[in-house]
């Protein structure tokens, strides 16, 4: 079976997926979560105005950069909290919230309702804009 056809097919499909991957990863999407995420679910206190919940795992390169970014963003904003959850240790929560990959960051309002979600390392401006839109 010496043919260049499989090679061409694989590279074409992978390129299509790669372009979608690059476009979608890190993009913050508005959400209207019905579920209220409580402090006991994430095992940490919620911020009084907003909370950034980051799901991470061990085999994830952008998780570290995401942690640094979100910690930097919440620094100096006293009413916004950053909580990192080890996805591997919390598989039930992961399933309940439909987390498929890491890092996934949820933006919660003061009631713990999800208002935004970014899969992949989020972009600073998008997170800051989303946080500004949340009122207490």
């Amino acid at each position: 079976m010496k043919s260049l056809l499989p090679l061409a097919i694989v590279l074409a499909l992978a390129t299509a997926y790669g372009l979608w991957y690059r476009r979608s990863r890190g993009r913050l999407r508005a959400k209207a979560g019905r579920l209220r995420i409580t402090e006991s679910m994430i095992q940490a206190p919620l911020g009084s105005r907003a909370t950034l919940v980051q799901f991470s795992s061990a085999f994830c390169t952008p998780c570290r950069a995401t942690r640094a970014l979100l910690e930097n963003i919440v620094q100096g904003i006293s009413d916004v909290a950053h909580v990192e959850v080890d996805a591997e240790a919390r598989l039930e929560l992961v399933r309940e919230l439909n987390i498929l990959s890491t890092p996934t960051t949820l933006i919660l309002d003061s009631h713990g309702r999800e208002v935004g979600r970014a899969v992949g390392a989020p972009k600073r401006e998008q997170v800051i804009t989303a946080l500004k839109a949340i009122r207490t």
Partner: peptide
């Protein structure tokens, strides 16, 4: 594309 396989399939 700097694809992270562990991010996508480990979970």
């Amino acid at each position: 594309f700097n694809f992270c396989l562990g991010c996508e399939i480990y979970l």
